[in-house]
Amino acid sequence: MAYTQSLYPILRKQNLARGIYDYTVHCPEIASEAVPGQFVHIRVPGFQLRRPISICGINRQVGTIRLVMEIRGAGTEVLSRLNEGELIDLIGPLGHGFTLLSPHKKAVAGGGGIGVPPLLGAIAHYGENGTVITGFRSASAVILQDDFKAAGARAILCTDDGTMGEHGFVTGALQKLLETETPDIIYACGPMPMLKAVAAMAAEKGIECEISLEERMACGVGACLGCACRTIKNGVEGFSHVCKDGPVFNSKEVVL
């Protein structure tokens, strides 16, 4: 498969929460190839390194993808100033996405904060057989709840401070759910402590689990070997790379 790098028009921009922007970009070459969990590598004018951003939604018919990004530093701040009608420089689709089972299977996804957007495409695949548990700091940071519901999924919302949904963390809600249900697969994306806890719960219950990782990245295509993460593959421990071997890994392969 060829990689595509080009300038693509932004069709729509929405502010979802403070510092979180939702871009719909017209990029038919990327949309036709992309699968949930993959990412695009975005050039930031004035910065040396691109920013890897997970794909939140893919519309093959219209040829668009959706990118939800949070201002984390100076680079994403520059990206957040891009407006509708302007062009954005993307390489994509990159990396290894989520394994999607038959839509008749049951899937549960756990996401924290800006780790939530990559889960939308995966959970939407399962329609009403999908459940998503999302966690945010506070009501003001909550995003994408209507999108999960529109996809037919059951959406369980948690906030750290209890200002919306359940008061608590994603891991607590997942633990409770797993007491009464046994999904066929669990997906997770978010802070490392959450990923560790989700992977441990899945291992204990013998449920397949895939997690999406993040690491400081340069090339984005597997050449520079910058974004290393520790993995065990076929019994051999070594470094894999988030950009090419991931960002989605089977949780059993990752040394967390």
Binding site: E215, R216, A218, G226, C227, A228
Partner: peptide, 10 residues
């Protein structure tokens, strides 16, 4: 094997 990550800083 190379060094432990992070290996990149802007």
């Amino acid at each position: 094997d190379g060094n432990l990550p992070p290996r990149i800083a802007e």
